[in-house]
Design a protein around this nucleic acid. Structure first.
Lengths: 321, 321
DNA sequence: CATACAACG
DNA sequence: CGTTCTATG
């Protein structure tokens, strides 16, 4: 369905290495070339000369992974590359990359994950080594986006987006409400509504897949200690649950829970503290929410054995129409 | 020469564990009992019930080590305990312990270095995990002292003192003049004169041994790259050298250099950067300076193979009269 | 329990 | 190059 299009100019490789200024479009690639992709603006490049050998989004199987890596540098040391290759998804969405603009992405990402040549990073400019999201794709997105259009969130790289032919893919690292719920108001009263508005805007033109660390357990079966945490611990307060339900009320479908409505012990996060993971004392915080494309879902797999982070990867298998 | 003296009260063990307030005398022991030793004030306790089995300072061989450990917790992991036991000195002086009041000393110090039962810690209250000195002694000091009497220095635990029968032992972590020599003025114009005045005060009653990381290479043979560092790098500026020479002018004798006046490549510090230690690109920064007791020195040994820090231990062998 | 940065050397 | 702290989770 894509047409070949002659290139007007050779692709510019961004080879600068030093720290760069804010608000410079090129800077946001963190020294990584994003082949033929514009920066944060919406751009719809045609396919380039390499398109003959490129995997393009088409009909049939399409797999997406989401993984809060809790620091991409650390996760790399613990086998990120191998896990990513084993999952072999078309697209990998990451949260809490904790990449700083200064250091940029780990070199292994470029040297060993060449198949995922389209890489969209949203890093935290507001606080180095904090938060941060990324999308790696084998398929060339029609456009990419960093942020959701409000600097209060975007300055920390909480979201990024890739537009594909049939859907938008948005990944977020939802603000943690914090110890003592100090950020609960920011998260529920500012972030959540801004995020919903952003998704709604995208959804005007096509289906939306929203994934990532949503930092909330939906119901009692989504965490081990529901009673002791309810309204006490970040991630399981009614205010946070309410915001997730607003999203569900808009028609977003929790893909995993739809397929496995009663499944227990299906966690995606285990605290590092107290040997929680060995005891499977966990939380389901990482989701795929489907809007207008629920019927594409073939399966959702929680890769609970995959190491490298306090979260595990979650994979969705789609059958694109 | 010591007289037994009946104890008036059982020794109070300081067993508190939590963080404590400033200016509380007990606090400065960091939770460690300093058996029968008063806090920072001069106190001359007699021997106690354990004195029969105690090693006491007497005539003959007495060995002292000085070692900038560059973080006692880290050094412990790299073999501090074994090295300390192997050196088997009567007294061990440490610099850059980097102990915080909150964490206190590593438990291994108490559990595995029981022979050195008298432990005097001067920790940094001004900046957690910074600077800090300590003296561990098998022999019971007549008194101990933290600091040199000026809070601008003492708040960082730069010095501590143990008084023995025949001499005072003072150890310091001399302020590093810093990159770009930003602290050169503080170090040369404030610290050095205050320190000299302190030593002079002590020396009114007995000989003084001043040791530690003096953060200066005296002459060209005391560092590998003398020309490129002279007046550029902290530790080899004329201003710093001048201050050391003022001390020598007062009669303090550089024990190592006195014995080995022409010895080259006798370094006690090698930067972690650039593999300096493997190439023996180093500095002699750690000294024993003897005032009125130069004749006690039998030998000074630079234990350049001892690992665990970017400095190595230096040992002095005394023959006490 | 673990990651990242900053400060300091 | 390496240690420590702090913020954050």
């Amino acid at each position: 369905t894509k047409k070949k299009q002659a290139k007007k100019a050779p692709p510019k490789k961004n080879e600068a290495k030093g720290p760069k200024r804010k608000k410079d479009a090129e800077e946001e690639t963190n020294g990584l070339p994003v082949p033929d992709l514009g920066p944060a603006t919406q751009e719809k490049p045609g396919s380039d000369d390499e398109s003959a050998t490129e995997k393009v989004e088409s009909t049939g199987m399409f797999k997406i992974a989401t993984w809060n890596v809790a620091g991409l540098y650390a996760c790399i040391k613990k086998g990120f590359v191998e896990t990513a290759k084993t999952l072999d998804c078309d697209v990998i969405c990451l949260q809490e990359t904790k990449l700083s603009l200064k250091k940029g992405p780990p070199p292994e990402i470029r040297s060993e994950l060449k198949d995922w040549k389209y890489q969209n990073y949203a890093n935290s400019e507001g606080k180095a080594g904090y938060s941060g999201t990324a999308i790696f794709s084998k398929t060339k997105p029609l456009s990419i986006q960093r942020g959701i259009g409000k600097s209060k969130h975007d300055d920390f790289g909480r979201s990024c987006t890739a537009e594909f032919e049939k859907f938008y893919l948005v990944t977020s690292y939802v603000p943690n409400s914090g110890r003592g719920l100090v950020n609960l108001d920011y998260r529920t009263k500012e972030w959540e509504s801004d995020l919903r508005n952003y998704l709604t805007k995208l959804n005007k033109t096509k289906p939306v897949i929203y994934c990532g660390d949503l930092n909330v357990a939906h119901t009692a079966i989504d965490l081990t200690n529901d009673k002791s945490n309810y309204n006490k611990t970040a991630g399981y307060t009614q205010a946070e649950i309410d915001e997730l339900e607003k999203l569900l009320g808009l028609g977003y479908v929790d893909a995993y829970r739809k397929l496995y409505p009663k499944e227990e012990d299906c966690y995606t996060f285990w605290s590092y503290m107290g040997g929680a993971r060995a005891k499977n004392v966990g939380w389901r915080l990482d989701y795929f929410l489907m809007k207008d494309c629920e019927e594409w879902v073939e399966d959702v797999v929680i890769h609970s054995k995959a190491q490298g982070s306090d979260h595990c990867p979650v994979e969705i298998k789609l059958n694109l129409p």
